[in-house]
């Protein structure tokens, strides 16, 4: 596997780019380049995400984290590169993948209740014309219950708080019954209760054998929440277990040495409490 020289030499071994075709890899990206206008947002990124793990994608603002997620899902069309899921093209594995977007892209005035949103997650089963049965409703309610939102099933989505809205969208992802969950900044702008509820559900997913990949911006919580990290800044920097890849050296590479305090040390200090 050849790569151009723009990626820092030191971290190359951290990226197991050759593992991408294996059926055990839920998401493998190779040579992915995405550009908006003239500037590349993601440049020649190759990475394989580990099954049954909870991986954080971290990097500074404008590093292309969300774009990487969106292009991996086919929401944004990449210029070049390949995405495989469990060793097969994305198009044939979509039913095994659930995506929770960043919250901005939706019209919150839309005439839909929390329950309606969760039912949308069952589109694969319901198809065009199949009736929504009591069993579907019951499952949708249980998904809402897992995120602590069962009391708000009939509430129009615009009348929920930001954190509650985020939990409803996580419930929709749960309703998809996926094996791989991709989340774009799930904790951005949510209250502490929601953050706890979301992390608990995500840990449940992983405990049940699922895979979670989340774009994350709060470096201090990385060691507490995640098993693995993928650092990027337009280019891939490193991927690996938090213990080794979440290092000062890699963070300096990703953030260009602009971090004021040492998140690794800070997180460690917090863990010691």
């Amino acid at each position: 596997m050849k790569h151009d020289s723009t990626r820092p030499e030191a971290v190359r071994p951290a990226i197991p780019a050759t593992a991408g075709d294996a059926p055990s890899v839920p998401l493998a990206i190779s040579g992915l380049t995405v550009s908006y206008g003239d500037m590349p947002a993601v440049n020649d990124v190759s990475v394989a995400f580990r099954s049954g793990a909870m991986t954080a994608i971290i990097g500074p603002n404008g590093a292309g984290k969300s774009t990487l997620l969106k292009s991996a899902l086919g929401i944004v069309t990449p210029l070049s590169g390949q995405v495989t899921c469990w060793g097969r093209p994305l198009a044939r594995q979509r039913h095994r993948i659930a995506y929770v977007p960043q919250r901005a892209a939706i019209d919150w005035e839309f005439p839909a209740r929390a329950l309606d949103v969760v039912l949308m997650g069952m589109y694969r089963e319901l198809g065009l014309l199949r009736r929504v049965r009591a069993s579907h409703l019951a499952r949708a309610m249980s998904c809402l219950a897992r995120v602590g939102m069962e009391d708000f099933a009939d509430r129009q989505i615009g009348r929920l708080s930001g954190g509650q809205q985020q939990r409803v969208f996580l419930a929709r992802a749960l309703a998809q019954g996926a094996d791989l969950y991709m989340l774009d900044e799930p904790f951005a702008g949510v209250d502490a209760a929601t953050e706890r509820a979301i992390i608990a559900v995500l840990k449940e997913i992983v405990a049940e054998g699922g895979t979670v990949i989340a774009v994350h911006h709060d470096l201090a919580t990385v060691p507490g929440y995640f098993d693995r990290v993928f650092l990027m800044n337009v280019h891939a920097i490193a991927e690996g277990p938090v213990a080794t890849a979440f290092s000062r050296e890699n963070l300096d590479l990703a953030y260009g040495g602009r971090l004021a305090q040492d998140p690794v040390g800070a997180a460690g200090a917090r863990d010691a409490y």
């Binding site: 929401i75 198009a91 993948i97 995506y99 892209a105 839309f110 949308m120 589109y123 694969r124």
Partner: peptide, 13 residues
């Protein structure tokens, strides 16, 4: 689906 959440609709293919 596509009216409510275009990105999600795309992920469903």
């Amino acid at each position: 689906l596509s009216t409510f959440d275009e990105g999600f609709a795309r992920t469903l293919g």
